[in-house]
Amino acid sequence: MEAKRIQVPLTDEVVTQLKAGDSVLISGVVFTARDTAHKRLAQLLEQGEELPVDLKGQIIYYVGPSPARPGRIIGSAGPTTSGRMDLYTPLLLRHGVKGLIGKGLRSDAVRKALQENRALYMAATGGAGALLAKRIKAAEVVAYHELGPEAIHRFVVEDFPVTVINDSYGNDLYSSGRQRFAGE
């Protein structure tokens, strides 16, 4: 299948054109966040405070990269399991986040919030961190430096390969893919 190219920030128009199962190549900025960063972001939103980065229209990538060798942009940088962020994700989607990159199953609440807020959940290949790192053209820590691999990084990516898992229409590749091939 021919991959579709998209640019960040994401608009409703781009989000609604994509369907579960689509191969997508992302270019632009993505922000990284995982367990502890999510907890902190959610706390700030709940307290009505400003976030350390503006996430409206942006993509959050669940990743804790390995350290870069001197002269390199980043180390290995594949996705971590998304489900651990489920608790915080609906809140971030309501706040304007338009895309999520990770791997693995999401909760019903996240899938519903993706539909309500017109956003996408996409999977990058778990365990392909060396390959994915090649598509990251710039990286800097922009918040929570003290969290090490869990800090929020700003990545500039070019043709970053993902597959749409949950689209804004309620479709789910994990369940449709399994149904299609089960029992054969």
């Binding site: 390995s66 390199r72 290949t125 365990g127 961190g129 060396a130 597959t163």
Partner: peptide, 27 residues
């Protein structure tokens, strides 16, 4: 889609070995 995953994983292993970068960031 599954075939594409296998292709990426083989390519990933090649890059990791060549550049001495972890196969996966979760070391």
């Amino acid at each position: 889609a599954g075939k594409e995953v296998f292709k990426q994983l083989l390519e990933n292993a090649r890059i990791a070995a060549e550049e001495e970068i972890p196969i996966c960031q979760d070391t």
